[in-house]
Write a protein that binds this DNA or RNA. Structure first.
Lengths: 231, 231
DNA sequence: TTTTATTAAAGAAAAATATCTTTAATAAAA
DNA sequence: TTTTATTAAAGATATTTTTCTTTAATAAAA
């Protein structure tokens, strides 16, 4: 992911100590949050790390470590204050400050995200969509206007949008990214299976349906092998 | 993920050596595949691991290791035969044998997946969808019929469907999963933020939009800190 | 042919991550 | 009050994953 030629990964980590949250932790935090919201609705005022661990089938110390990244501190014999912990995690994940984003590629997946209400539920608000198809341009999908890509730069620059969601066909993904980077987009959520070329000043998060299917099918295969193997 | 009480993870791995493909590998394989399809279309007959590594910014030996899991072997000084490698990876990921799946929850995200043509492009074919809303039941979304959940068990059992896609609201996710498990679904692709309780004989693949947004926003935050921090 | 450069493959080392262990704090019970 | 059980936090260990190193193979060039 890092495009380093001279620096090794070791050097990189020496340069910025403790600033980078481990990705596994970031993947678990939303899960904790959802669980906490559930028990909060049921009126549970406090929760301990071991209790969370039991419910979610995790290691208790892992939960303590993950939570410590957010700055949350618990009390011995009591645990964490449920609503405080929820607020701390939400703040930490920037889920409260709705970041504005634009979307490029209003095809199947793009339209889905545009009309997917829940998207606003996790810190991102799509304020505009872009496409090239005349059938799409000028329409509204889920309260968001679809404009021609030629207007991307002007709008993004003017409104200082930092996040771009990429849902174009893979074929033209890099082209779309170049336009985004040109308009000073700083973070790209990539739903295409393309490996994007971007400068170091831009972060890319890949959400590959392919990868998820691959893992699911593989685990299913392994499960079957295991069962037949046991006899 | 494994619900073991007496066995430790160590024991587990001792029991099935070399059967479990590392998840990072499974995440990278589809990326290699996409890249290979690209160069194949451009008429490139052979490709070496170091060449792939240069293009995708990976470590060359990591690519060799990942590919060796699929059984692919390359020739020194030539590399791999492009089309053979594509076929081997596709076979390995079961992308050629379209597995049949059902979908539960025909809301925003569910409808999106139903009308998302590409889904069939990666080894899964949704043959039926289920919901409870009278406005949904009886309709067709992307050539797939939406039926009432009460018909799930009969249909899944009769057609021996093994894969279930979960796109219900989080609130009723576990309920829906119980129905799926009851109907002998063996693999669940979970798009809800819920932690699902399933028996050991069922595999779950979580695709959490929340987690992806969390990672993206965090990396963006870190990027800004880094830039301001440098001055 | 013989040499040379390039490569896959296998094994070792390093880094990242998860799990286990110990310690200190503290609320609840005696 | 004093004791006890439970807990968070910190540190140590183990595991997993990635990266580095070495070796052997072989196609292309001399």
């Amino acid at each position: 992911m890092y495009q380093l030629l001279i620096m090794t990964k070791k050097d990189l980590h020496r340069k910025r100590p403790r600033t980078e949250i481990p990705e596994p932790t970031l993947r678990r935090l939303p899960r904790y949050l959802h669980f906490l919201q559930g028990i909060w609705e049921q009126g549970q005022m406090n929760i301990s790390a071991p209790a969370i661990a039991r419910e979610l089938n995790y290691d208790p110390t892992q939960i303590v470590k993950d939570l410590s990244y957010t700055g949350a501190v618990g009390k011995p014999r009591v645990g964490y204050v449920t609503y405080e912990l929820i607020r701390i995690i939400e703040d930490f994940l920037s889920l409260n400050t709705k970041s504005e984003a634009i979307l490029v590629g209003a095809g199947n997946l793009g339209s889905a995200l545009l009309s997917y209400d829940n998207l606003s539920g996790f810190g991102i608000k799509i304020i505009a969509a872009f496409d090239v198809a005349p059938t799409k341009v000028g329409t509204q999908i889920g309260n968001v206007s679809v404009m021609h890509v030629s207007r991307l730069n002007e709008l993004v620059t003017r409104l200082k949008v930092e996040i771009g969601i990429l849902t174009t066909p893979a074929r033209i993904a890099q082209e779309a990214v170049d336009i985004m980077v040109d308009a000073k987009i700083k973070a790209i959520w990539n739903f295409t299976p393309t490996f994007l070329q971007v400068p170091d000043s831009v972060v890319v998060q890949n959400t590959s349906m392919y990868a998820n299917v691959a893992i699911l099918l593989q685990r299913l295969k392994e499960l079957k092998n295991k069962q037949y193997g046991q006899i």
